[in-house]
């Protein structure tokens, strides 16, 4: 019995530790003062200032735009790459998988500065395109890693079997391979999307020219001190995450029930 309560209190303390900072942000996003210590009355004004803040709104736009384009392109390139890698000779497979793991294993800061160096060396000015290329570069490896296991689970020679039955290679790919590996493709695309939305370090080194994402905007504002708009932004993001998670949970439990 005592053990049970110790466990409950321990888990409770951990959850308090994890959620207290978020709770503070949420509460003070409604505080009618700049301070984050004293409660001075309820207000929505920080939400208005947030929505009127062009810098944040523009960075939100770029965050989503980049995430959509980067995850889509990364999924296409990654899926085809996984298909080719699966059927490639052993040494080629090993080589490309090792290269593929570099962006995953390398600290973000090293990936960031190395891409920045590359863009400078190529004479590309940092901006939307460079940030998109960078995001695709760190997204593709994850797509490959989530598609490849599905390829491996497929029975051997299905492609040959399909072609033997008269399908062209492209038809065989579309009709046989794609349906088999689609769960891997979807989870790869989702990983790519969340990574892109969340990225700060690599974007920080590869964006420029007025193009920023939300993380960079938060960083540059936070460095200059406490901004109540950021509290409002956190609250909105936290609510979005909660709604998304609940929706996903509902959907998966619905699927399980079927």
């Amino acid at each position: 019995m005592v053990m049970k309560w110790i466990k409950r209190i321990y888990a409770g303390l951990i959850f308090i530790f994890l959620y207290a900072p978020i709770a503070v942000l949420v509460v003070f996003s409604f505080n009618d003062a700049k301070s984050t210590a004293k409660w001075e009355g309820f207000t929505f004004k920080w939400y208005r200032t947030l929505l009127e803040n062009d810098y944040i709104m523009k960075s939100l736009y770029y965050t989503i735009l980049i995430a959509v384009i980067a995850s889509l392109l990364a999924t296409v390139i990654g899926t085809f790459a996984a298909f080719g890698i699966h059927y490639a000779k052993q040494w080629r497979q090993k080589l490309i998988m090792n290269i593929n793991s570099i962006p995953i294993l390398n600290p973000d800061i090293v990936t960031g500065i190395s891409l920045m160096t590359l863009f400078l060396w190529m004479g590309l000015e940092r901006g939307f395109i460079t940030m998109l290329l960078a995001h695709m570069t760190f997204c593709i490896p994850y797509v490959i890693l989530s598609v490849l296991p599905k390829m491996k689970q497929m029975p051997a020679d299905v492609l040959e079997a399909a072609m033997d039955l008269g399908a062209t290679p492209w038809m065989a790919f579309k009709k046989v391979i794609l349906p088999e590996i689609s769960p891997g493709i979807i989870s790869g695309a989702l990983i790519a999307f969340t990574l892109s939305i969340d990225d700060f370090v690599i974007s920080f080194f590869t964006a420029g020219n007025g193009v920023t994402n939300l993380s960079i905007a938060i960083y540059s504002m936070a460095r200059r001190g406490i901004k109540p708009e950021i509290n409002a932004l956190s609250t909105l993001m936290f609510i979005t995450i909660l709604i998304l998670l609940i929706a996903i949970n509902k959907r998966t439990s619905n699927i399980e029930e079927l």
Binding site: I22, I226, S234, L242
Partner: peptide
């Protein structure tokens, strides 16, 4: 419950501690 905070933007999570640990913080 353990995973939800990880979905929160990394910078916001760090920023939250700025507001708590601040000289005028909570």
């Amino acid at each position: 419950l353990l995973v939800v905070p990880m979905w929160m933007n990394f910078l916001l999570r760090t920023y939250a501690w700025m507001t708590i640990l601040n000289k005028n913080g909570i």
